[in-house]
Structures are given as C-alpha cells and as structure tokens.
Write a protein that binds this DNA or RNA. Structure first.
Lengths: 154, 154
DNA sequence: TTGCTTAGTTGTCAATGCCAACTATTTTCC
DNA sequence: GGAAAATAGTTGGCATTGACAACTAAGCAA
C-alpha cells in the first residue's frame, strides 16, 4: 500500500500557512517585546507573571515545564525577578527543597498595565472587523493552537 | 467631546485575542526552534536564509533593518553563518565598505529541508480543515499581520 | 580639502538557553 | 531503619542574542 502523497492543494496551503505564521509571530513578538520593555519587563518575565497570576503559586520546576525552559534558566529568571521584587517565594511545609513562587503586588501591577496596553493595541487592530469576524479570528487562532498542541512535531 | 470609551465587547475580544495570539506564538515558536535545531540552524539563521533566498543578495544593514536586529547583532550572526558556510559574501564594486551577502548552496539546502519539515507538519494540522477553511485561516493571519504592520504600537 | 554620513566591526554588559555537576531533601524499597 | 534512587534547585561553563557606544574605513557634499 503506497503512502498517500500529500495533495498538492493541501501542500500549497501548508506552505502559505508557514509564511503567514512566521510573519505573524515576528510582528506580534516584536510588538510584545517593545511593550514589555516599556513596562520594565522582559517577554519571559511577562509570561511568567501571566502564569503565576492565572494559575496561582507554582514551583520552579512547574514553571519551567510549562514555559518549556531549562530549570537552570528558570532558576535564573526567578532570581532576577525576585531581585526586582516582581515575585515572592517561600518554602512549602511539605517539601523543604521546593520553592513556592507567587507574583508580588508590584509584579501584578506591572503585568496588568502591560496587558492593558497590548489589549488596547489589539482593540485598534480589531476595530474594522465585524464582531462576527473578530470572534472567527480568535476561534481560529485557538484551533490552530489546539491542533499544534495535540500533534507534537514528529 | 468625551473620548469614545472602548466598547465592552470589543475590549473582551481584544483581550481574548491577546491570549490566543500569545498561545499561538509560544507553540509555533517552540516548534520552529526545535525543527530548526534539528537541521543545524537557529531561528534567526533560518529567517536570514529565508530573506536571502527570497530577496536575493542583501547588505548587512538591509538584513538588520528587515529582521529588526541591531547591526552589531546582525554582524555577528552573519559571521557565525559564514563560519558555518551557510552564506557567502563579497564586496560590491561600487561600495568597498559594504557586504553583499548571499545564501550558499549549503545554506539553501538546509533551509529547504527545514521548510519542508515544517510544511509537512502544517499539512498535518490542516488535514481536518476543509479547503475553504484552510484558505480562510491563511487569509486571516495575513490580515492580522497587515493591520499590525500598518498600525505600529503607539 | 574638510567635514558629514554610512557600512561594518569590536568591546562591554546583561539575558537567554543548554548541559553537566553539585547540594539538599524526599521517596522507595529491601 | 537505612541505603539507594529520585527530585528540587543552584551554580559553572559555553554559545547566542540583543542594546549601546566607540571605532575604522569608505563614500559624499560643501
């Protein structure tokens, strides 16, 4: 039984998706980085705060796994954030090796402001879409994320 | 005249777009990085090769401008790529300061393979979409890129 | 010619990222 | 209980990325 050759049309669309996704990532990444810097955060610090705020206290290893960073990198990121008073941490009772890391008031404040700035920016981008088109765009991005998560790269 | 307050619905969608775009960027970025590493390239090297192949020879400053990197960073990136024989360069006749940088045969080969791998991956993701839905997804990403490019962040 | 601009390189500093070695704790298992 | 294995974090080393400033060399303009 011959392996099904990828249909030409599908292949063309997959190729176009690559180009579009690459362009999308570059643009939004730079925008987010610039905005984050304006609020005294790096992109990784913003991701970390996002996680800490939405999921509550986390261990260093847990953060590293979610953010797909090496635990050594995560350790240094958290060090830096603690030095800048963006996070607090404590030793949980049940495991004296671990760190229980939470966003500090200052960390929450900065993240909230950053998010507001980006959301305002997004609102400008979405202004000329109809409400239905806006919802479609968001649904679509979510779908692509879901599928990529479900089907890890080879 | 009071500044128009952003409509609540628009604001909610803009917020959802932020979350969806962030998730999208993280997933695709990691996937692309892992794939690139598999072919002995970094993400920036892949972007650089993409540019060099699609746009022909480029100056260092031109590359830096397009990729939004500092010229010092670009200089070191190109140094590394030249060391690994991914690019070639020469001095143009009319300006003996400048570098005319092109992708080498090896650079083209690696980029082609990387692109094929990612496109294959994308094809898997798109398999369950109808052709119309696929096209819609691509069009939508392109639109978001266009708008973000047209409306720089504040 | 003199001075201004442009192209690229190099130095410094900090952050990111990977791997490996290390300490300290907890868990497993005999 | 106690030795061995697993786990949580830290630190050191190395390379890359990225910002900024100082520098060389070449082109351009007055």
């Amino acid at each position: 039984m011959p392996a099904a050759r990828t249909a030409p049309l599908l292949r063309r669309d997959a190729s176009a998706l690559y180009d579009a996704a690459t362009a999308f990532i570059r643009i939004y990444q730079f925008r987010d980085r610039d905005q984050a810097l304006r609020f005294g955060l790096t992109v990784i610090q913003a991701y970390t705060l996002d996680l800490l705020i939405s999921a509550g206290g986390q261990s260093l290893t847990g953060l590293a796994r979610t953010l797909r960073l090496d635990k050594s990198t995560m350790s240094r990121v958290i060090s830096g954030m603690a030095r800048r008073a963006l996070v607090d941490w404590s030793r949980p009772e049940h495991d004296r090796r671990a760190k229980q890391i939470v966003a500090s008031a200052e960390g929450k404040r900065r993240y909230r402001r950053l998010r507001q700035a980006i959301v305002r920016d997004n609102a400008r981008l979405l202004l000329s879409y109809s409400p239905a088109a806006r919802r479609a765009a968001i649904t679509l991005l979510r779908q692509l994320v879901q599928r990529a998560e479900g089907a890890p790269p080879a």
